[in-house]
Nucleic acid binder design. Structure first.
Lengths: 228, 228
DNA sequence: ACAAAAGTGTTCGGGATACACCCATGC
DNA sequence: GCATGGGTGTATCCCGAACACTTTTGT
């Protein structure tokens, strides 16, 4: 099946993952055939097809490059600087992958959360590799992707404490300390243990299970699951 | 000066105006030369130029169609349904105005606030007329503009009570009752007078002037201005 | 005098913050 | 027994919500 691509519009995905300790972003290493590219890393993203919606394009592109599927992607911002794909650092890659390397492209940013231990991304298409990187250690990325990541983090923090997104990052069963670490990673500040527990229990965000941690070298913690 | 338009990307502006009573949205009546168009009303919006940013395009398009200038426009969402400009109702207009009437167009929505009594919009370009309409009485609009308006209102409400935007809608000197009416219009609910006054005074949102209302047939109110 | 909107205080409940010690387990 | 993180309660402050009557002006 052959699809017409729209050379002027792309989508880029900022996938956040949590490893019970730190917040990470999914990056790809892009290839240009056998030729090394100047800037290797980028967000998973590509041009949209003429007959698909932006939301559909984001899901498809993510699947094509990383093999991740069934993830809720949320649009957060369009990026339309006229020179956003004209940086010299991206020239070699564009010339080997795009039919119209000089075309101006506006992109629409999407973000999502996943559990790093549950879904295993696998590189395909022009992604040579896919890997996680701590949000505090993002390398130089292609195009304006560093800016896109920064904006996504900001939106994530806002959405997190207003709209209550973010639990996708936890295992099915977790301790309150793990939950607190998640909150602290996203909000980037320390929280008080007792106050935190009072809050999540009162708001019925989580419910206790009849089960405790095993094999830890300290008092085993009560396990919880999400309420709904 | 001749500019290349990008036939695939447009911007649309949702301009909110306040008349000290109700919240309104600026609409245009679009023309197709001498031929009557099926759906007359739309948001001010048009295709972007190749060499301008999305933000610049939004300002330019607003100026071209309504003569409004110097307004801070905030991007709020991209709309990319593949059929968003393919509705039969919009066909006649597209055919008379667009070089590629069949092209798929994604659009980026912007919104702004202005005081209705301060800036006077004037129709030009393909806008035959420009007019305000109460947000509760929006007519059928071209393309997916009704959806765009609805989303803008939602974003407006969120931004309003978190980010404190919205004072652009008030005259330089105003009474606390007028301020309260603004809040009530945007939030679409009644507020308690005493609590409201306590709040805005405590947060130093406004400062009192040495001046009172005149010529009103009731106790004249203290006038205030914005703090900063 | 009357109509119309301005202006003004108190009480109550809930949520956020600050803070320190004992407990259960593995080694 | 010691190291490690788990688990617990109280006091305070601030904010938001509910609620009704008096004041000032123009006519």
């Amino acid at each position: 099946m052959n699809h017409t691509v729209n050379p002027h519009v792309s989508v880029d995905c900022v996938i956040f993952g949590f490893d019970n300790e730190r917040l990470n972003v999914l990056l790809i290493e892009r290839s240009a055939g056998n030729i090394p590219v100047a800037v290797q890393y980028a967000l998973p993203g590509d041009l949209v097809w003429e007959e698909e919606s932006l939301d559909d394009a984001a899901s498809r592109v993510l699947k094509e490059l990383t093999n991740l599927e069934g993830i809720y992607l949320k649009q957060f911002k369009a990026f339309g600087n006229p020179n956003r794909v004209n940086d010299f650092k991206d020239l070699d890659w564009l010339q080997s992958y795009r039919q119209q390397p000089q075309a101006r492209v506006i992109t629409v940013g999407y973000y999502a959360f996943i559990r790093m231990d549950e879904l295993q991304p696998e590189a395909s298409s022009f992604a040579e590799k896919v890997f996680w990187r701590d949000i505090h250690e993002i390398p130089l990325l292609g195009f304006d992707h560093n800016e896109i990541v920064d904006e996504a983090i900001e939106v994530l923090r806002n959405d997190f404490d207003s709209n209550k997104v973010g639990f996708e990052l936890l295992p099915d069963k977790f301790t309150l300390s793990q939950l607190q670490t998640l909150y602290e990673s996203i909000l980037d500040r320390k929280l008080d243990k007792r106050n935190f527990r009072k809050k999540v229990l009162k708001e019925s965000i989580v419910v206790p299970l009849d089960e405790k941690q095993k094999g830890v070298l300290h008092k085993p913690a009560q396990l919880f699951e999400l309420n709904q």
